[in-house]
Structures are given as C-alpha cells and as structure tokens.
Design a binder for these strands. Sequence first.
RNA 1: GCGGUGGUAGCUCAGCCGGAUAGAGCAACGGUUUUCUAAACCGUCGGUCGCGGGUUCGAGUCCCGCCCACCGCGCCA
Length: 585
Amino acid sequence: MPVPFNLAVELDSVLKSAAAAAGLDAAGFAPEVRVADPKHGDFQANGVLSYAKSRKENPRAVAEKLVAALPETVRAQCDVAIAGPGFINFTLKPAALLAWLRTFSNREALTTGAGAAHAGQTWVIDYSSPNTAKQMHVGHLRSAVIGEAICRLLAFTGARVIRDNHLGDWGTQFGKLIYGFKRWADPAALAADPIAELERLYKLGNNATPDGSPELDEARRELVALQNGDPENVALWQKFSEVSLAAFQQIYDRLGIRFDHNLGESFYNDKVERVYRELTDTGLAVESEGALVVFHPEHPRFKSQPFLVRKGDGASNYATTDLATALYRTEHFNADGIVVVTDFRQSDHFEQLILTVKKWFAAKNYRLPEFHHVTFGAVTGEDGKALKTRSGDVIKLKDLLDEAEERAFAIVTEKNPELPENERRDIARAVGIGAVQYADLSQNRSSNYVFSWDKMLALDGNTAPYLLYAVARIHSIFRKAGVNPADTSADAQAAALETAAEIALARKLVKFPDAIRLATESLRPHFLCLYLFELAGDYSSFNNADKVLVDDPAIRARRLLLCARTLLVLETGLTLLGLRTLTRM
RNA sequence: GCGGUGGUAGCUCAGCCGGAUAGAGCAACGGUUUUCUAAACCGUCGGUCGCGGGUUCGAGUCCCGCCCACCGCGCCA
C-alpha cells in the first residue's frame, strides 16, 4: 500500500470506512481527525463525541466499536488509544515515520502529494496593485508579500496560478500630472529617477490647480484629451506606465515576484458599458441621486449603503472596473478562484462587490468562481501608529528594503567577519529581505502588525534568521560529511528511529502536509510559518541532543536522513513563503 | 447610529468545525560548549483569555448585553 501524503486525511477516510464496518450510521459520522497535542499522539479523532451525543449513546462505547473495526494496516502503523470522554489517539510507530520520510524524499514527491488539492483549477491572484507614477511605499509591502506567498501555496497545491497586477493607472490624477509635466518636467531628473520626478510633477500640478481655479479646468481638459485619444497625452501616459513598471520591477525582483499580467484599471475602460447594461437589464442597479447604484435589501447595512457603480457625471469608478475585472477573469482566464489582496479598509467595498457579482452572474447564468477578499491589517511603528519616517514622511519601500539589507549586513559582519564581503552582502540580502517578508507573514494577517527591526532580525524566536540559520546548519553537516543532501542512496541503511529527539523531529516532519492544508484553505500563510518555526525548534533540539556524524553507519544514515528531510521541508516551506534560503550564513 | 477588525503572561503574538491541565518567543533568573555554525540548546518564573450573563458532557472558541482601541459608511481608490 502506498504511503499517503497527508496522514490525517488518510485516517479520516479509514475511520469513515471503519464506522460503516462497525455498524455506525456512517453517513452521519464525521471523524474530525486533526493533528494532536504531541503528548497525546500524532493525530486525534474527536468525531465520536458529537456523534454519540446526538444519538444519546455512550461515546467511549462508540469509540471502542470503532477502534475494533479498524483494519490491521492501521494497527501495524499506529498505536491506537481511547482517552478521556472518547478521543481516539493515533501515535505513529517509528517504522511508519521512517516509511513516510523515505517516500517523500524530494521536492517532486512533496509537490505531487500536495498537488491534489487544487488540481486542474485556475486561480487569478490580484495583489500589490500600486498606482503608476507614484513610488511604492511601506503601505504596499503587505499586499505584495502576502499575495506572493498565496500564489506559491496555490501553485504548490496544484493550481494554475495567474498573477495579475491590477495597477491604478487611470483616473483624475493623470490630468493634474500631465498639467504639471508639460510645464515643469526636468529631463535630467526624469532620466535619473523617473518616478520621483513624476511624483514631484504631480504635487506641483496638484498645488497649481485648486478647486474652482482656471488651472483646474485646464488640468481637466488634459484628462479629457487623454481619454479622447489625444496623441501627445496618450504618449505621455504610456511613458508614465512604462517607467513605473520598470521601477516596480526593481522592488519585485528583490521580493521574488514576477507578474504574468499588468492589467490595470485602464484595461477595463472599454468594458464598463457592458457592466452598466447588464446590471441595469437584470434590475440589480437603479438610479439614485443621479448615480447608478446597487442596493442589497437582504443585507443589514447594504440595504441602505449603496454600491456606487456609475457616478452622477456618468464616469466610472473603481466599483465599475472591479466588476468588469471579475467578469474578465471569469470569462477570459476561466478562473475557478479569484483572490484579491488588499488592506482591511476596503472590506465594505469587496463585500458589496462579491454580493453584486453573485447576483449578477446568477441572473446572467455565468459560472461563478470562488471569490476571496484577502485582507490584512496595518503596519504600525512601535508606538502603534502608522509607520513613518522620523520626519513624518511615508517610508519608501525601496528605502525600507535597503535598510533591511544594511542592518543584516552589519549583523553578518559582526558574527562572521572572516567571510568575504561579497558573500556577506549576499547573505545580508537573503536575511534582510527575508526578515521583512517573514515578519509580515508569520502573524495572522487580519491584525495590525508592529514593525520592529530588532524583532524581525533576531536570531531567537519565530524569525527568518532563526529559520535560515537552521537551514545553514544542516548544510554545514552535509558539507562536513561530504554528502549531497539530495542523495537518497544511503537511506536504505537507516535503522529505525530511536532517540526521543529523532522521533520528535520525525513526528513533526510528517505533519508538513497539514500545515500546507491549513495555510492554503484559509489563505493564511502564518500557519505555515508557525509549523516551520516549530520544525526548526525540533531540529535544533535534535541537533543539540544527537550527534549526526557518528561512526555507526546505521545511526549515521538515519540521522542524515532526518537532516535531509528537515532541510527539504524547511527549504520547500520557506520558498513557498517567498524567501531565499542559504547554504551558509 | 450601523458595520468590520482586534482585546489571551510585563512586552510581541499563536490557539485550525467547541475538546484533555490555555501555548510560543522576548524580557527576568539559572544552567549547557575538548562537539557537525553558541546566530544554538535546556530549565525556572509568569494568566480573572476585556467585563457580565447564557447554551452543554465540555467555552479563549458559539449566542446575548456592555466596555475599550483601530477602521469603514454617496459620487477617491
């Protein structure tokens, strides 16, 4: 019998069969297998409690019947015990742990095992999505980091992932920018740092066009000219987009991000008429105070708080383009799932959007993809307020990443002064950027998080340096042994796991699939972070308790096997989070 | 006013459909290295899970009320 990837899922289905064999009402029985507290076992089934309760039976008696009906193959692999009011605990035997570790021996095997979850599905992920002609700042960090991790998790679990950067590249601000550009553009500054110059020109344009002024009318005429296809303004707008994307890509390169599409708001310009028409035809949208709006009468708030899909002046807004975008992703990409990653302040908007899409698609008989708004809290300084520079300015993302690398470089230089500078620079890039990414990902994304250089760069605790250090130490052992960690040819010599630290590590390793499942189902990468942190802790304990490179070939082989799999899982997991791992630090 | 998110150890946070004696890290205190990276490991101390009710075999988790913080709520995105 092949070794299953996710043992919890396997036990769940085994218990369902056992329920039928034991004469239980199998259709009404959910085993509820989950990862157990290690002191009780590896996995625990709690389902008999609610089953027995609803049928007024004795839960322990039900559990005993169920356990008696378990196939011999399960008993061969696990110790099974009934505990407390009727929990069923499964503790894997060392031989079963070893069998799993031998089976899932490389990235391909893990990918194949995990790939069943979203096999054959297409998911469109909308993240980062900055405004063109503006620099990315600290507020753009979380969407990019969380979005990329979600992309990688979905791809790992079998989905075809389409990364779409939904740029803010349209709207009234371009009239003011063109107005400023035509008057004050500095060619030298434009060549040196185009985005900074565009930002300066926008500010000049904005300041020069106060409400009610003839200058504002002029800026509006520039916008109308752009929208009507005036060649000069269109060329300028295209230039703004090009230099913006080039600048964004410099940030994305450092974060390991590469988009498949940059379909910004402008792309949907010619697609909004259909939205108006279909929402009106289906009766979903109505005129209100001169605008076209959608109410949701069944909703406590949106029955009176409108979703405004066309402004009173006839222009579209972001609700319109977001509706057009949802349709395009469904029809053109054939999406099974759509994920939009933005901060929590847009929750109302996306709740209204999703409600509207559901009704609209149902009325038109369009296939409805899963639609998730992945929200995240604010990044704050240690005072709990929005993160700013000392002078109170917005922190540019480029400066933040630079500082991360500089701080990491100082630490590497202090710890390992003998390494050549270019290697210390390379380590500092991986550790510094990784620290920023990991700090963002390791916390439940719903809450705000406090940005602290000292905490994210610490070598203790749930941090990127701690995990990267564990990886580097394992590589160090293989260097000393003169063995390639990917080489599995000596695995057969591995004796059964024996010491407490070996077994604890192996028991943690086999739970990787559950961490992937949790993180992916909930679109919350922190579940994977927590798992990797615990795994690194178990590895460090093992590393401290048991010497790997001992003379006894059987012991050496099994410990090298454990090291190799720990390395595999840590590197796979960190890669899924978007981090780059190191062989030395 | 309506709604969203949060409130768990001194600090920063986990706690997956309700499950066993609520867990980590930091800080504090005490240990461990002739050793594969001590950037490590082990231990001790630390809790009225915001407050009050309720549901039940069982509540940090679900329901009701209240308090506090942040955020959103008609033509910005």
